[in-house]
Write a protein that binds this DNA or RNA. Structure first.
Lengths: 197, 197
DNA sequence: GAAAAAAATTGAACACTGTTCAATTTTGTT
DNA sequence: AACAAAATTGAACAGTGTTCAATTTTTTTC
């Protein structure tokens, strides 16, 4: 293994482990065994495991952003918001274990805060959706539009946690896809009404 | 301490610890120290710590249900849904640490499923809200109404995770109360529109 | 009541975490 | 080749959840 890219090798190997065996499987020793590097080296490179997970999470957010950014010029604003949502759902379902980790990182995080580097990615995605929002609701003043956007995006984001587990299966027969799409379309219909008031 | 109520004593003491020091503070040994019972006794009573946390969580859901049930006959259907939401937010903000545990239990739970006893509480609350929904949207057929209700309730439920931490503080200036209320009212407005189609 | 049987309680011990740091190995410099 | 600097290592520490033989307490039986 290329010694010049220890950090990269560890990140890649860790990502494999998460994807294949689940987020819970990722421990310092198992990463050490799987990568061939000692536990100490992991700590030299990342300081602690929380930082390692943080890196995994913003890589995941980067990958999500890349997927959504491809749709930047697709269709009408309304269609685009639906495409964003569908692409978002696809991404989450394709990367259940990685997305699970994004949602459950704050447990280990002492200060319970997004780090700056983490937050930047979330804002980036928000801005992407905001341009579609602007075209769709031109009559809503900016501050309120931002607020509505944030509420919708945070709702979809938090709701997507259910897509990564089978928690819902015993609660509702609802299709996981429909769950998010129904939220989007009902919310957008509501905004159209509130826009006219 | 009353020897006849070991289980009750442990549950109460554990609840105190969670509320005062946070969900992360609750460990078998700390509960043992705080309660005066040995670690072994805790395991005799609850089998494992996951079961203990599960009990804490459905007690929390019971308490939430009790709060919401008081509003069963209040105001119009529309007002009642708003009251439910406000009461829900109040409850979450008053019991941040307990609610945090409700949201983050599935991490430790191997099979990643709600237990039956857990699920019953969630359904109970859903049914409470459904009666207001029925009055508000009489023209929507039952299966679709249930679906819409579940989407709204699950959205509010998952969104409420943000109320228990300061994760959002660096992302948005939005008031935590407004976050949920805006979701509710925009969603309800959207349903009124979709009802007429 | 005393003795025997049953049940409940205990905490040391096991396997697993994240993390540290003196000792070792590797790399770079003179 | 000898030295200095840096990187790597893994045994060791403190903390988890969990188990189970030994102890203590309670109940039953005579």
């Amino acid at each position: 293994m290329n010694k010049d890219n220890i950090q990269e090798n560890l990140v890649n190997k860790g990502r494999e482990l998460i994807q294949e065996k689940g987020a819970e499987f990722l421990t310092a020793r198992k990463l050490s065994d799987a990568s061939g590097y000692s536990v100490g080296t992991i700590y030299n490179q990342f300081g602690n495991m929380d930082n390692f997970i943080l890196i995994q999470n913003y890589l995941t957010l980067d990958a999500l952003y890349a997927r959504l950014a491809k749709l930047r010029a697709a269709g009408t604003a309304y269609q685009r918001l639906n495409l964003y949502t569908q692409e978002f759902i696809d991404f989450v379902l394709e990367n259940k274990n990685l997305w699970f980790l994004v949602h459950n990182f704050h447990l280990h995080n002492n200060n319970r805060r997004f780090s700056k580097i983490y937050l930047r990615r979330v804002v980036q995605i928000t801005q992407l959706v905001e341009s579609a929002f602007k075209a769709l609701f031109p009559n809503i003043p900016l501050p309120e539009r931002i607020l509505s956007l944030q509420v919708l995006w945070l709702s979809l984001f938090s709701l997507s946690a259910f897509l990564t587990t089978d928690t819902l299966d015993s609660f509702s027969k609802i299709n996981k896809r429909s769950l998010c799409e129904l939220l989007l379309n009902t919310y957008l219909a509501g905004m159209k009404v509130l826009e006219k008031l």
